[in-house]
Amino acid sequence: MARQLTLDLTMPPASSRDDFLITSANRDALAMLDEPARWPQGRLLLIGAGGAGKSHLVGFWAAEHGAQLCQAWTLTPGNAGDLVQPHAALVVEDAHEIGGNATAEQGLFHLWNLAGARQTLLLITARTAPRDWGVMLPDLRSRLETAAQAILGPPDDALLPAVLVKLFADRQIQVAPEVVDWLALRMERDLDLARRLVAAIDRESLADRRAITRRLAAELLDKLTPAEA
């Protein structure tokens, strides 16, 4: 039977505070974000692997605080002054990407100093701790390495199945609980993998008009996580 052409008609992911799934993996980080008055000098680093929930957290935090968002690699000494508004809030995303980029490093250093002078809340996100970014500018490296950090841990036993249910719901798909439980027990605790897996299951089930079963889930999980040689 010919495969059916599929279109991506999924709804945008639910990304409000009410849609954020709180477990032991992220509870402490969320608590730190919710108390900016306690951030040392008004700055905080939000650290978590890809798919750990940084974008979701940042999205509703920025909306609640009227914060501007920018990508770290776009920073320059010239644009930092425009980004840092007095008594406002700013989010710099994916700061782990700036290591070795002299212009971006200088831009973040200038922005860091301006945020303090202008009493601007500064939230910086990254996948790893600053010591792993390869930052070449000594003054910036020392500031980053001593900054307060909110850490997003890997998904725990409660978070991964809840995320799978949410990802299927975002695509308006109802899946039997046993399929979700089976996946949660066998896949790596990786939320980025969960997103890719749910997308693949959705595409495959539509293209071949197959029900979403443990067999289909197993086939696609094997494709996305090939066995080590």
Rank of each mutant, 00 (worst) to 15 (best):
V165A: 09
K166T: 05
K166S: 04
K166E: 08
L167V: 04
F168Y: 10
F168E: 03
A169C: 10
D170V: 11
D170C: 10
R171P: 11
R171I: 13
Q172Y: 13
I173M: 15
P177G: 06
P177F: 03
V179W: 01
V179G: 01
V180H: 07
V180K: 10
D181L: 14
D181K: 11
W182A: 05
L183C: 05
A184P: 01
A184N: 08
A184C: 09
L185H: 13
L185S: 13
R186P: 00
R186S: 03
R186G: 00
M187L: 12
M187Y: 08
M187K: 09
E188G: 06
E188C: 09
D190Y: 02
D190P: 00
D190K: 06
D190T: 06
D190I: 06
D192A: 15
L193P: 00
L193N: 04
L193M: 05
A194G: 09
A194D: 02
A194V: 04
A194W: 00
R195I: 07
R195K: 11
R196M: 13
V198K: 01
A199D: 10
A199Q: 11
A200T: 09
A200H: 04
I201R: 00
D202R: 02
D202Y: 02
D202C: 09
D202Q: 03
R203N: 10
R203I: 12
S205Y: 05
S205R: 08
L206T: 10
A207V: 06
D208R: 15
D208F: 14
D208Q: 15
R209F: 10
R209L: 14
A211T: 12
I212R: 05
I212C: 09
R214W: 00
R214H: 08
R215D: 15
